[in-house]
Amino acid sequence: MSTGFTPLASLAGGMLIGLAAVLLMALHGRILGATGILAGLMRSDDARDRSLRAALLLGMVLAPGLVLLVTGDWPALEVPVPMTALIGGGLLVGIGAGFGGGCTSGHGVCGNARFSRRSITATLSFLIAAFATVHVTRHLIGG
């Protein structure tokens, strides 16, 4: 299934992601990593910390509704893989982000933005793995 090239929307959306990361650091002193926010919600016994994470998550979850309200359409969301891939992929993403200490937002945006060598290494590792995985599933075994 092909998707159209959306340079302006993707650039603008990326800038909003960057803005959110900067605001979270400026106001709350935190890295904006989706994995870290979720993982901390399950670990933290500090009510102040939990409420901050819950508010961030609630804001994220409200976003598609905001897009619907403003544009009249849900944001495009197509899932071209079977449920087994969602479950298996989700498990790997969770285990990998748990050991790798972050994900696309934490390492890929926040870590790279402060030139962390750990994050640059992690980003290269997960990007190469993802390119290789899609090549294998779509061209070598999936055909």
Partner: peptide, 15 residues
């Protein structure tokens, strides 16, 4: 860091 991130990338590429 490297292997965890690679696993993450594999899962991302699958899902």
């Amino acid at each position: 860091l490297v292997a965890g991130s690679a696993l993450f990338g594999i899962g991302w590429g699958i899902a």
